[in-house]
Amino acid sequence: MEGLLKLKRRHFNVLTTALCALAAAGSSGLTHAQAAAAADPIVLVVGDSLSAEYGLKRGTGWVALMTERLQQEKVRARVVNASISGDTTSGGRSRLPALLKQHKPAYVVIELGGNDALRGLPMSMTRENLTTMVRASREAGAKVLLLAIEVPPNYGGKYAQEFREVFTTVAKAEKTALVSSFLKGVADTPDPTALFQADRIHPNESAQATMRDNVWPELRKLLASR
């Protein structure tokens, strides 16, 4: 009889433990798949309209296509797009601390600067803001990828070169990864309007895969280095 009571008590304890575990899982609202996804390292994209799908159907921008690429390559990472149309490097700099605290990213992709040029802001300000963002991201434990932005050709070749060098200078000084031409194959085609929307500033849907492919090699290196 005593042995039977011990056996029943053991079964009761096992059942109680299992029920408690199920209750905990249910209260968290997460499935095992969701919990695993939540544990994946985060790639935080901080950008402007080029990354915020301005003028595009939702889910067709290069950031969304990057998520598809990660899935195709079976790379465990989750992309968080914190891009805002019209944002400048000053705006990104002010938003970044809260984003780092909220998402705790392992990687930060910075795609900002185009609106600085469009507004005629000093290049020195753009360089300082980008430097601050890179350092803040690194101090938060994230690896950084900087995307160099091209300005429209009507700004002139000299200005375009000097603006591009802002990104190169920051990347070299901070020893951070760089995509030297984010819009390669988009802004430098024989027909510069073919891959742009009517405003001739924002790439159209057909350009998004090229933009994704410009970023992917450098991002892949970062993901593999962790």
Results as ranks from 00 to 15, higher is better:
Glu2Met: 11
Gly3Arg: 12
Leu4Ala: 15
Arg10Phe: 14
Val14Arg: 13
Thr16Gln: 12
Thr17Ala: 15
Leu19Pro: 04
Leu22Glu: 07
Ala24Asn: 02
Ala24Met: 08
Ser27Thr: 09
Ser28Gln: 12
Ala35Leu: 15
Ala36Ile: 12
Ala37Gly: 01
Pro41Phe: 05
Pro41Thr: 09
Val43Pro: 04
Val43Phe: 06
Asp48His: 05
Gly59His: 07
Gly59Tyr: 04
Val63Ala: 12
Ala64His: 14
Ala64Cys: 05
Leu70Met: 12
Arg76Lys: 14
Val80His: 05
Asn81Ile: 00
Ala82Cys: 03
Ile84Asp: 01
Ile84Ala: 03
Thr89Glu: 08
Thr89Cys: 10
Gly91Asp: 03
Arg93Leu: 12
Leu96Cys: 09
Lys101His: 14
Ala106Asn: 01
Val108Cys: 06
Glu111Ser: 09
Leu112Glu: 04
Asp116Leu: 08
Ala117Arg: 10
Leu121Arg: 12
Thr126Gly: 02
Thr131Val: 02
Arg135Gly: 05
Arg135Asn: 12
Glu139Val: 08
Gly141Lys: 07
Leu145Cys: 02
Ile149Glu: 10
Asn154Val: 11
Glu165Leu: 09
Val166His: 08
Val166Leu: 06
Phe167Leu: 01
Thr169Gln: 13
Val170Glu: 04
Val170Thr: 07
Glu174Pro: 00
Leu178Asp: 11
Leu183Lys: 11
Leu183Ile: 09
Lys184His: 10
Pro192Leu: 04
Gln197Tyr: 04
His202Met: 01
Ala207Tyr: 02
Gln208Arg: 02
Thr210Asn: 00
Asp213Lys: 07
Arg220Ser: 15
Leu222Asn: 01
Arg226Lys: 08
